Amino acid sequence: IDAAQIVDEALEQGITLFVVNNRLQYETSRDSIPTELLNKWKQHKQELIDFLNQLD
C-alpha cells in the first residue's frame, strides 16, 4: 500500500488529507473516522506527509 492509495481511500470516504507545518491534518463532514483508516494514517504518517508535500 502506498501514500497515494491511502489518500484516495480517504477521499472516497469524504475525507481530505493535507499537511500543515509538516503535520498530517484532515477535513471531513463525517462524524468519525474509521479506525482502520486512522491506523493506516499512523502507520504511514511520514510517507503521507512526504507525498502530500510533493503535491503542493
Rank of each mutant, 00 (worst) to 15 (best):
E36I: 09
A10Y: 03
K40W: 05
K45H: 14
E27N: 13
I15W: 03
K40T: 09
E12P: 00
T35R: 11
A3K: 02
L17T: 00
K42H: 14
L37P: 00
E27D: 10
Y26E: 01
I1T: 10
T35G: 11
L38G: 03
G14N: 05
N39T: 11
K45D: 11
T16H: 12
L24G: 01
Y26V: 06
W41L: 13
I6Q: 02
G14Q: 04
I15S: 01
I15E: 00
D31I: 05
Q5G: 12
Q54L: 11
E47G: 06
F18K: 14
R30K: 11
E47L: 12
R23I: 15
Q46T: 09
Q43D: 12
N22G: 15
A10L: 04
D2G: 10
Q5N: 08
K45Q: 15
G14S: 04
G14C: 05
Q54T: 12
I1W: 12
R23W: 09
Q13V: 08
H44D: 02
E9W: 04
E27W: 12
E9S: 05
A3H: 03
L55V: 12
A10P: 00
I6V: 07
N22P: 00
S29I: 09
D2A: 09
I1K: 08
I1G: 08
Q54M: 12
Q46D: 11
A4S: 11
Q13S: 07
G14H: 05
N53H: 07
N22K: 05
L37D: 02
N53M: 12
T28S: 10
K40Q: 08
D31P: 13
D50Y: 09
D2P: 09
N22W: 04
K40Y: 08
A10V: 01
L52Y: 02
R23Q: 15
R30W: 06
F18T: 14
S32K: 08
L55C: 07
V20T: 11
D31C: 07
N21H: 08
L24K: 00
E12I: 09
R30A: 09
E12F: 08
A3V: 13
I33H: 02
V20I: 11
V19E: 02
T35D: 13
A10N: 01
V19K: 01
N39M: 12
Q54P: 07
I33K: 01
L55Y: 09
N21E: 10
N53K: 11
S29P: 06
L38M: 10
D31E: 13
D8G: 12
V19N: 02
Q46K: 11
L37R: 01
V19S: 04
A10I: 02
F51N: 01
V7W: 06
D56P: 14
V7G: 01
F18V: 13
F51H: 08
Q25M: 15
E47P: 06
L52I: 08
T35V: 13
P34K: 03
T28P: 09
L17N: 00
D8R: 14
R30G: 08
E9R: 03
F51M: 04
